[in-house]
Design a protein around this nucleic acid. Structure first.
Lengths: 271, 271
DNA sequence: AATTGTGAATCACTTCACAGCA
DNA sequence: TGCTGTGAAGTGATTCACAATT
């Protein structure tokens, strides 16, 4: 049902979005992290390192598989799963092969086994406590998410600057002041900090989260954060997303124009 | 929900774009595309295409440059700009080179020129009307963003299913019913649809947006959308973002373990 | 017969390193 | 001298295509 694969001629390209990068701080929207510095990854003992891009897709497969399991499916082929996840089957199989060999040739994969292996690989067998900083519109939405997606990411601290908000429970949890970030995060062993503040406050919040010992930061503020290398930063940037879409609209308009013989150098070549 | 940003992940889309262009002054870039040699491509004109990854970074550079301009900067070197954007300078220069040659050797770039060229390339010289579907916590946050980031993305329609919400103004704009999506989007010439509904509603909303003629969709719902190839879909998936962070935490723990001489299986042994 | 798993090829992106210019 | 712009090399990710396996 879906994806047709490109053959020659038609150049169908999957847009799989490549994401990629992210450096010491945060950079583009995509996957993250690149070892960039120096030698980078030494030799992960047992880990065959998984490409960054594949990690993001594993999370998607996990969601699809969970839905399938709920509907009673017990086995699934790479063709089915890849269609549901919107990727091609070769990519899916390659991605799964990073986990090990858990499929049966001629048959497919057992859903429950795959779910277990992906969860293990993504580190989902342990809980990751989350703090949300900036209880504005977005922060509210995040705090109310009620124990974040998929369980395993309980929100255990909320922070804001506004005195009127301090102490007020949001989603069942009272809001603390920004100044308390380091102490509270340390006490509650927060491992992921979510920044939903205005851009001007973001760097300072980031610094406090780091002081509080958080290991990862998910940044919704439209700024490039500077953080030490041991802290993983990812960003979600609405403005960037919209601008990328804008680019594609423009590109498309352009194409149409040249197909109509408009711009271009007058060299329209059509069949 | 919120979720992460991802790249486009899912829907199959094709973008092969044989482009053509590259006129001395007005060239509109295209995303990189499969060269596919062969006889097919009949376009002798050297296509100027911008890698997808570079497009995302251009949006970041634009924001940094705007901030610099506000502070009175008139010129900037690749070194300065790249540091502020969190990338290395070679990558920055390469990215800017896709726009054309707008720097001065030995000096740097003129901020205002760069801003103008990036805006042109990203198609920001024209407005892109936005509709937000699903006025829950997140939709509310988005609607109130007040004419989205950076101007140029005015929110001109809101939709929800809840009867109690229909007609109620949110951020100054009344909410319409989901059923009206195709008609309203067409009337108001919406070009970008933002889906902030629960996952079960997302595909149907997507279909209606497409019926209403929107060209791009930004999906916050945690599902893989199927959309026709001429519609650009991007997704922001909070669960995926958190799981990627989780993976990095696990990986890091793993590495530490092996640095301590632990072999494998999870058991931490400290010397 | 069907489907996985994967080496090899291809394609995309990044980084290097330096020629060219102001 | 300083900094841009870019070919070329390097790295990483995707796709192909088929042998291996049930």
């Amino acid at each position: 049902m879906v994806a047709q694969r490109g053959r020659r001629g038609g150049s169908a390209r999957q847009a799989g979005t490549p994401d990629a990068d992210n450096a010491p701080t945060a950079e583009m929207p995509t996957v993250a992290d690149a070892p960039v510095n120096g030698a980078a990854v030494a030799d992960p003992v047992r880990a065959r390192s998984i490409p960054e891009a594949a990690v993001a897709r594993l999370a998607v497969y996990l969601r699809v598989l969970s839905a399938m399991a709920e509907q009673g499916a017990t086995t699934v082929s790479s063709e089915e799963l890849s269609a549901a996840a919107g990727v091609n089957s070769a990519k899916l199989r390659k991605d799964l092969s990073y986990l090990g060999s858990y499929g049966t040739r001629g048959v497919g994969y057992e859903v429950s086994v795959l779910v277990g292996q992906i969860e293990r690989t993504l580190g989902l067998t342990r809980k990751h406590k989350v703090a949300v900083v900036g209880i504005g519109n977005l922060g509210h939405a995040l705090a109310n998410y009620g124990g974040f997606p998929g369980r395993g990411f309980p929100v255990e601290a909320l922070f804001d600057l506004d005195p009127d908000l301090i102490g007020v429970p949001v989603g069942g949890l009272p809001v603390s002041h920004l100044d308390e970030i380091p102490q509270v995060c340390a006490e509650r062993e927060i491992s992921i900090g979510v920044i939903a503040t205005p851009p001007t406050a973001a760097q300072s919040v980031c610094d406090r989260l780091v002081a509080g010992g958080v290991q990862c930061i998910l940044n919704f503020a439209p700024v490039v954060l500077q953080a030490p290398p041991h802290v993983e930063v990812r960003k979600v940037d609405l403005a960037v997303e919209l601008q990328i879409l804008s680019f594609h609209v423009a590109r498309r308009a352009d194409q149409e124009a040249s197909e109509n013989g408009v711009a271009n150098n007058g060299m329209v070549v059509r069949s």
